[in-house]
Design a protein around this nucleic acid. Structure first.
Lengths: 209, 209
DNA sequence: AGAACATGTCACTTAATAGTGACATGTTTT
DNA sequence: AAAACATGTCACTATTAAGTGACATGTTCT
């Protein structure tokens, strides 16, 4: 027995938005079509056009839901002020740990990250912007230019890129350069590698606060 | 005036294989369908099934063409023996330079790298294997476990992943963590960042050959 | 020459997709 | 109650894709 129609615009909109998230998580972005989303939401597809204007706008609405990227607060461990008082090397180590945990626990984000490498759209542009902004604020707040005597922005960019990519690849692939990126052990090795990089960076130059 | 049919099986096979490469380079993997490849090759699509068995097998044949990843020789600068005699830090620096140059000058490889994040198929599996093998041989030949006192395998994996990802993203995006990855200047910053990482790694522990 | 085969063309089916116009049914306003 | 509107259903078009069976034409072997 089919449910009676809801006749509730806002609820239907919400179901469609939720359907995007569910489909993305379950089937990946390749399954994201007008038909599939409508089916997932249990709603006629014409309502996507009526209520959002089309799939791109629906995806944009989903993008507003947020929480696709670790926030500054999450990256600093909840207390930015206390974080700012830590020595530089400790700040960098914690940042890495929180970042790795933050992206690995967000399958949706990894999916969007993969999408990004392939296509530009409302969601991927949104994620790009959030990420670049977060990085910018972090850098300004906690890693002023010249700290540690190295080009921290470039190093953090490179390391962040590496961590993102490894998390991304770990969805399908077990080994990367001899590291088992699907095991917790492998990720401990990676985190330890970052620690070694940080330690080296700060020991080879005057360790300014 | 349409050309007369070739009636040359090998030539037709070759045209199909070439068409895969051209399409991939010009339109990306999303355009890679049976119809598109046949059109690009100027050949009837049924021949893809007859001569290869299907698109996957045609793509696999294309994968055998090779040169999708910097070889050991390319990464060491042409003379592995001389490379092996360099001090560790110099080896790492050169490796990075050659690797960055090697992937950035291969648009097709970047395309496949993007494809990899999204789908597993004959080509992406091939690239994965080549890459993992190359890394393995490099590690065995030039970076024995424990050299430098750090987990070099993990560090190289992380840095390699970061470089690959940045090269990949640079196809569509200009800024990554405040670095302009579409400019030569930006890439010099990234290479310099690797130098700093290498220098730090080896200075903080006994610099064993 | 004739049979067997290789090469290539063409027309078709099946399935999936994005998008739209016409309609039915319920709610609100007058 | 009647008109106007909102919500949702349904059926359809047009496009594209993968895959296949029947045929035409040229080559090779006997």
């Amino acid at each position: 027995m089919p449910n009676p129609p809801l006749r509730d615009r806002e609820a239907t909109r919400a179901r469609l938005i939720a359907a995007v998230g569910n489909l993305l998580a379950r089937k990946g972005f390749k399954a994201l079509g007008v038909n599939a989303v409508a089916r997932e939401a249990g709603v006629d597809k014409v309502l996507i056009y009526r209520y959002f204007g089309g799939l791109p706008q629906l995806i944009a609405a989903f993008g507003q839901e947020g929480d696709f990227w670790p926030s500054v607060s999450e990256l600093t461990g909840g207390d930015p002020v206390a974080f700012g008082r830590l020595p530089l090397d400790e700040r960098l180590r914690r940042l890495t740990r929180h970042f790795v945990a933050g992206i690995r626990r967000r399958p949706l984000t990894l999916e969007i990250l993969a999408w990004e490498t392939v296509e530009r759209n409302e969601l991927t542009a949104e994620l790009e912007m959030i990420r670049e902004n977060t990085h910018l604020r972090l850098t300004e707040m906690f890693f002023p230019a010249g700290a540690g005597g190295a080009d921290l922005q470039a190093v953090l960019g490179l390391v962040g890129a590496g961590l993102s990519y490894l998390a991304l690849r770990a969805r399908d692939v077990q080994w990367y350069n001899g590291v088992d990126i699907q095991s917790e052990d492998g990720w401990r090795r990676i985190e330890a590698a970052v620690d070694q990089i940080v330690a080296g960076l700060l020991s080879s130059t005057p360790n300014r606060e």
